[in-house]
Design a protein around this nucleic acid. Structure first.
Length: 321
RNA sequence: CGCGGGGUAGAGCAGUUUGGCAGCUCGUCUGGCUCAUAACCAGGAGGUCGCAGGUUCAAAUCCUGCCCCCGCAA
C-alpha cells in the first residue's frame, strides 16, 4: 500500500454522530490536533446532569485538545491559524462557519452531511427524511463554502430507510456509513484523485431546525404522518398533544405508540380516544388509528396506558386537541 | 437563587383549599357462580402517606428544612 502522509486535522462537531465519525478518524491514526465543539450547557439548578457534548467526552478520553468558542470570531481564527491544520472536518457542528476560516487549511474544509445532497440541505436531515416518509437517504461529503450545505460534492453513499427505522436506528446506520465514507474519501481527496461536482440546483430541498412545537400533534393529520413524526422526534422533542381533564388543559407526551388501519364499522371524532379489541386504546385520526402504548402526563413519569387508565378512567371517550 | 407540577398499598390515581376512621380503579390471595372465560358475585391480605423537625387534643392535610421524579425555559 502506498505510503501517504496523513493530514493533520481539526475536527468540528457536537452530537453522537460526530463522535462516531471522529472516533473512526482517531482509530485510523489521523493526527487530530484539536476538536471544536459547542460549549457545555449550563447545568440546571436542580439536577447536576452534565450537558457535555459527545465529541468533548471522546476528546477528553483521548487527551485531544478541546476548544469551545461561543462565537467563531477573530480570536477563533487566530487560534486556528496558529494550529495550522492540513484539513478541517465538520460533522453536525451546529454553527455556520465563516468562509475565511474554512480556507485556512491546505486541503480546505470538508463537511459530512447526513443526506443525499442537494436534497435535505440544512439542520435536520435525519429527522426530515423520517418525517417525509422517505425510503432512502444517505451521506454526502463535500467541500464547504459560505452557504449552508451548498458546496461541491466529493463523494456520496446511499442508505436505505427501513420501515421500522426511527431517529436512533437511522442515526446509527448513517454514522457507520459516514465513518467509512470519510476514511475512504480523505486519502483520495488529498492526492487529488477526486474532482468535485457541483450540486444540481433543480433538486434542492431544505430542512429547518427542529423546534419544540414541531412535536405538537393535530388529529386531523393521517396516522402515518403522526407515526413518522413519532419516529423522527424520538429523542427530541418527542410528540405531544393536549387533554382537557376537569377544566385543566394538560400536556401529554406520547412516548410509545403504534399504528393501525381504521376499523370500518366504527368511526370516531378526530382526536377521540376509544377502546377496542378488548384492551387496545386508540385515537382517531383523519385516516387510521394511533394506538397508545405508553404516555406521559406533564410532571409525571412515563406510564403504560393500562396503568394510566386505572387512575384516569375518564380518559376514554375524551377528545385530544 | 429562572418558572411550575409531583412523591399516598405491587401499578395508576383521589383526598390537602376548610386538620377529625386511609380511599378509588387495576393487580394479587381465598371462596362462590358458570360448559367456560381476561366475565360476574362475596370476602381479605397488603400503608414508616418521600425524609426530618415544628404547631395541635388530633397532621397525608398547616409551618420549616432536606432528598428524589417530572414539565417549561435552553
Amino acid at each position: 500500500m502506498q505510503k501517504i502522509n496523513k493530514p493533520t486535522i481539526v475536527f468540528m462537531g457536537t452530537p453522537e454522530i460526530a463522535q462516531i465519525v471522529m472516533e473512526s478518524l482517531y482509530l485510523k491514526d489521523y493526527p487530530i490536533l484539536a476538536v471544536v465543539t459547542q460549549p457545555d450547557y449550563k447545568p440546571k439548578s436542580k439536577c447536576e446532569k452534565d450537558f457535555i457534548s459527545p465529541v468533548k467526552k471522546l476528546a477528553l478520553e483521548k487527551n485531544i485538545p478541546i476548544f469551545q468558542p461561543q462565537k467563531l470570531d477573530s480570536d477563533f481564527k487566530k487560534w486556528l491559524e496558529d494550529l495550522s491544520p492540513d484539513l478541517i472536518i465538520v460533522t453536525a457542528f451546529g454553527k455556520i462557519i465563516p468562509k475565511d476560516i474554512l480556507e485556512i487549511p491546505k486541503f480546505k474544509s470538508l463537511n459530512v452531511h447526513a443526506s443525499l445532497l442537494p436534497k435535505l440541505r440544512g439542520a435536520s436531515p435525519i429527522q426530515n427524511a423520517l418525517v417525509n416518509g422517505m425510503t432512502e437517504t444517505g451521506i454526502t461529503i463535500m467541500l464547504m463554502d459560505k452557504g449552508i450545505d451548498t458546496g461541491d460534492i466529493l463523494s456520496q453513499k446511499k442508505v436505505l430507510i427501513d420501515v421500522e427505522d426511527d431517529y436512533v436506528t437511522l442515526t446509527s446506520k448513517l454514522s457507520l456509513v459516514a465513518s467509512h465514507l470519510l476514511i475512504d474519501t480523505i486519502p483520495k481527496w488529498i492526492i487529488g484523485a477526486i474532482t468535485p461536482t457541483k450540486q444540481v440546483d433543480a433538486q434542492v430541498t431544505m430542512c429547518q431546525l427542529i423546534e419544540k412545537s414541531d412535536g405538537k400533534i393535530t388529529w386531523d393529520e393521517n396516522a402515518q404522518d403522526i407515526y413518522n413524526k413519532f419516529k423522527a422526534f424520538r429523542v427530541w422533542p418527542g410528540i405531544f398533544t393536549f387533554w382537557k381533564n376537569k377544566d385543566n388543559l394538560q400536556k401529554i407526551s406520547l412516548t410509545e405508540i403504534s399504528i393501525e388501519k381504521d376499523i370500518l364499522s366504527e368511526k370516531h371524532h378526530l382526536g377521540e380516544i376509544f377502546k377496542y379489541a378488548d384492551s387496545k386504546v386508540g385515537v382517531q385520526t383523519n385516516d387510521g388509528i394511533i394506538v397508545l402504548i405508553k404516555i406521559q402526563l406533564a410532571g409525571k413519569n412515563e406510564t403504560a396506558i393500562e396503568d394510566f387508565l386505572n387512575g384516569y378512567p375518564n380518559f376514554i371517550g375524551s377528545v385530544l386537541k
